[in-house]
Nucleic acid binder design. Structure first.
Length: 270
DNA sequence: CAATGATCCTGTCCGC
DNA sequence: TGCGGACAGGATCATT
């Protein structure tokens, strides 16, 4: 399930692989995967990609025609750069297809079909990014901000950190890992988190994300880079889908907000 | 306003 | 062996 490090890894791959390419056409192969904004021009394509951007878990490609492509991989979405063939690309879960110049294709493969691609005028971009909190790796995500945000919330800290409006880009895997390193129970009430624990959460959020970025993300299910290689951070997970934490204590599984969480009752007591 | 639950989907895994 | 059901879960929408 792509979170910030996986989305950034995919974006880096696109930036490397498509820097000089032009997008000729975009085809939707599954109803609803591609949405064309009503204000988008039919002159939006063909276009070269002017720049690549990530915001939370969204991938954005800014086109030279004053339009932008917004891509969300959701659970199982995958972008693959492929050599084009004589015939149209075939894949059991191919949901969209970018036809490029220089004999390349960009394929959007997504078994569970939750992923979305939007083409819109760049000026209308904000309509498709929902409301997003600060980027966790910037100075905007800091101790005073998080303290302010948690002060009046009754929901568990894990649910708060999964809220994209509080901080953009975290998902289930990284929140489990962050809370383990910070020594905070996932079911602790947000407003009851101590200042010391808030400092630990902020520190370890940045630490875990930087490590995951250095390792090209986590390939726990079917996440792959655009060249189909795996990330490596799954080797560094300490509690997610583990039986025991690194200190040998048994891991507890709990369900919160419809998701399975993993924590160590011995190491996480705050 | 905050919090929770249902919904969208299909591949995989488990128990009988 | 095969089948039904649970599960995976990000974001959105409806409900409490």
């Amino acid at each position: 399930m792509p979170e910030l490090p996986e989305v950034q890894t995919v974006l880096n791959g696109l930036e490397d692989g498509l820097a000089t390419n032009k997008i000729i056409e975009l085809y939707c192969l599954y109803p609803g995967t591609v949405k064309i904004d009503t204000e988008a021009s039919n002159q939006a394509l063909p276009a070269k990609i002017r720049s690549f951007e990530r915001r939370g878990k969204y991938l954005i490609m800014h086109l030279e025609t004053a339009h932008s492509l917004v891509i969300h991989l959701r659970m199982t979405g995958k972008l693959v750069i492929a050599e084009s063939t004589q015939s149209d690309p075939v894949h059991p879960h191919l949901r969209a297809w970018f036809r490029l110049d220089q004999n390349k294709d960009l394929l959007f493969i997504d078994p569970r079909t939750f992923g979305k691609i939007v083409l819109c005028r760049t000026e209308n971009l904000a309509n498709y990014l929902a409301k997003l909190g600060p980027e966790p790796l910037t100075e905007d995500f800091n101790v005073s901000y998080l303290r302010q945000q948690l002060k009046n919330r009754k929901k568990p800290i894990k649910n708060a950190l999964l809220d994209q409006a509080l901080v953009a880009g975290l998902g289930n895997i990284y929140v489990c890992e962050i809370l383990y390193r910070a020594g905070v129970r996932p079911d602790a009430e947000s407003s009851q988190i101590t200042l010391k624990a808030i400092k630990a959460i902020v520190f370890h959020t940045k630490e875990v994300l930087r490590e995951a970025l250095e390792n090209n993300g986590t390939s726990i299910s079917d996440f792959r880079r655009v060249d189909d290689k795996s990330g490596e951070f799954q080797n560094l997970l300490r509690v997610y889908q583990k039986q025991q934490c690194p200190l040998g204590h048994d891991i507890t599984v709990i369900r919160q907000a419809g998701r399975s969480g993993f924590y160590c009752p011995h190491c996480q007591k705050k």
